[in-house]
């Protein structure tokens, strides 16, 4: 065994600098930061956070229209569907059947808005409300149905490599494993499983988009995810509930860029022992070792 405790990651063969972009369902993104639109104190802070983050894709939820709405303000008045891809989610669904219905409702609303994300869905099928972790069996069922119905299915998944592979095999446009539970701020917990997922899903298919979704708390978590080789990071709470969401949005933008550049640069292997940075010949000390 060598002292090395980490293999060099499989980095992208081609590094294209400013033109570094990635693709979901034929749509090209320059920004690798996807933001959620929930939990902001106001629509104004949300909009400003999106602008500062330079995000190009934003998730939204489908909910019952209030029968007697006092404010009359809709989120669509604060996001520009011509500039942002709106990605409707199925948050709050606990079985495949409800998630499929929810996805169809989101598509129906977005179809009227000429948004590239109209046929897209961030598919969440949850197991319980405490962990908000996915129910993999219902998730797979819903994926199969929605793929048949012509959706581009972006699956919020657990960090289980076998589940991730099954979702891709079922036709998921992207698999999006959680770094840690939604809104937990625990960051990237299971690097090893996530690396297996990346290796597996990108094997022979390097452009297949794999996105880390949920759990990040701060910019360093985002950088870690990007250093592992994820194509993008999807987050919400870490920005929306930060003391200063707009400043955190900027931090996240830099975290994504830093992590991406580091991934492309090919990090040094980790070693248990030191490796001197200064020449070992010509030292004036007489002491050895």
């Amino acid at each position: 065994m060598s002292d090395s405790i980490s293999e060099k990651p499989n980095r992208a063969e081609e590094v294209s600098g400013d033109l570094d972009q990635f693709c979901i369902a034929g749509h090209t993104f320059q920004s690798r930061l996807i933001l959620g639109s929930g939990k902001y104190d106001s629509f104004e802070v949300m909009r400003e956070s999106f602008e500062v983050a330079e995000t190009q894709c934003v998730t939204i939820a489908v909910r019952r229209e209030k029968l007697h709405d006092s404010s009359g303000r809709n989120i669509l008045d604060f996001v520009d569907p011509s500039r942002l891809v709106l990605l409707p989610n199925t948050a709050g669904c606990y079985d495949a059947e409800t998630a499929v219905r929810c996805a169809k409702m989101g598509r129906e609303i977005l179809r009227g808005l000429e948004n590239p994300g109209a046929d897209w869905v961030k598919l969440e099928v949850l197991g319980d409300s405490r962990s908000l972790l996915p129910d993999p069996i219902e998730l797979l069922k819903a994926t199969e149905v929605l793929v048949k119905e012509g959706f581009q299915v972006l699956c919020y998944s657990s960090d289980d490599p076998i589940v991730a592979r099954r979702l891709k095999d079922a036709g998921a446009t992207s698999v999006m494993p959680a770094g840690s539970p939604i809104g937990s701020g625990l960051g990237v917990i299971n690097r090893n499983s996530l690396q297996i997922i990346l290796e597996d899903l990108k094997h022979g298919d390097p452009d297949y988009p794999v996105i880390i979704d949920a759990g990040v708390g701060t910019a360093s978590d985002v950088a870690v995810a990007m250093e592992l080789g994820f194509d993008a990071v999807l987050l919400n709470t870490a920005v929306a509930r930060a003391e200063d969401p707009i400043r955190m949005a900027e931090a996240m933008k830099h975290g994504v860029k830093a992590g991406r550049l580091a991934y492309q640069s090919g990090r040094i292997p980790m070693s248990r022992y030191a490796s001197a940075s200064s020449p070992e010949v010509g030292v004036i000390s007489k002491r050895q070792h």
């Binding site: 959620g36 949300m46 998730t59 939204i60 909910r63 019952r64 229209e65 989120i75 989610n89 709470t237």
Partner: peptide, 25 residues
């Protein structure tokens, strides 16, 4: 679908869901 809203009638006992978009992650 939206383009059927002018033709489809609501019947006794129907269960309707009317949804919109809200902030979410």
């Amino acid at each position: 679908p939206r383009d059927t809203h002018c033709q489809v009638e609501v019947n006794d006992g129907d269960i309707l869901e009317i949804v919109t978009l809200v902030g979410g992650g």
